[in-house]
Nucleic acid binder design. Structure first.
Lengths: 160, 160
DNA sequence: AAAAATATGTCAGCTTCGTTGACGCATTTT
DNA sequence: AAAATGCGTCAACGAAGCTGACATATTTTT
């Protein structure tokens, strides 16, 4: 086989054309979601570093504040992680005084989770820059537009 | 101090009221973004497990396919990670034949990255379920609505 | 009353993917 | 010739997920 042909064969395996929106594949929105979420979660990180916590703590403190009295099982369902994974961060949040547990009044096996005042304050501090970013992204948008965006985001969720 | 007062004092530190959309904090959209992204990235995971890759490989293979010829530095900028972190996954993708490197034609220190046919196929396979999910979320939406959503997502990005 | 199921906690070990810091090599720029 | 740049790599570490096994308290079922 001549050298030139080998070169071409080797080159053939390299694709030089960009993968563009085509067929039914929406690469543009895929990337928009990636960048939007990357920057969205980067906001709270500075605050979290000061407390010695990470993103996992953020999620826990957020949802417990949103629904005080939720059980450990509820939280596992919401976060879609294992109890062993939750245990670490939850324990740290309890030990640090941001969250407390109360035995369920009906079913005493349950551990109902509540934020302390410090836990509420932390959740608010973390939500603030995220909310500002959202407001900036909605800048000038009508109420109908805002509803469309929410509808889209709801539609992105797996229906359970 | 009477026992009753101590009990109340202890109870005081537990907040039982849900943290609701109030002031300027938009908890609803914060959560919608969390759930939307959680489910959005869960799609490719099954496919990735079969190839022995993770989400980091997904991102690399995606962007190299979107912009063949991008350099290592470009990729680091896009992903916002360190070169040591990228090195691991990039090496695996190169060794597995999904991506190849070519010395830059002008600056030969650069490594331009290109997908192979297998790399293109993998990127397409990973994008497919995500794109289907996006289409479902847009179901029945007008072109104007779609543009509004994209505008919102662009607005969520940190401007560089 | 006994047995089974449930809710939670915990131990141990593993994986992925991010980090910092240091250094080497080839190449380009000054 | 010296300095800066692009990239690769070694080593050590941390955050946050995972599986599997087992313990304890409590509730439900038999």
């Amino acid at each position: 086989m001549p050298r030139q042909m080998s070169q071409n064969a080797a080159k053939m395996e390299l694709l030089e054309t960009p993968m563009r929106n085509a067929g039914s594949i929406d690469f543009e929105v895929i990337e928009l979601l990636f960048f939007a979420y990357r920057d969205f979660v980067s906001d709270p990180d500075q605050i979290l570093v000061k407390s010695g916590f990470g993103r996992a703590h953020h999620r826990v403190v957020h949802f417990v504040n949103r629904e005080p009295g939720m059980t450990v099982a509820d939280l596992l369902e919401t976060l879609q992680i294992t109890k062993q994974s939750l245990a670490r961060v939850l324990k740290q949040l309890i030990d640090s005084g941001y969250i407390r547990q109360v035995a369920g009044p009906e079913d005493r096996r349950q551990r109902k989770l509540y934020p302390t005042r410090a836990g509420r304050d932390l959740a608010l501090a973390l939500a603030e820059p995220q909310s500002r970013r959202i407001e900036r992204a909605f800048e000038g948008a009508s109420e109908a537009t805002r509803e469309s965006v929410k509808r889209f985001l709801r539609g992105m969720q797996t229906e359970k």
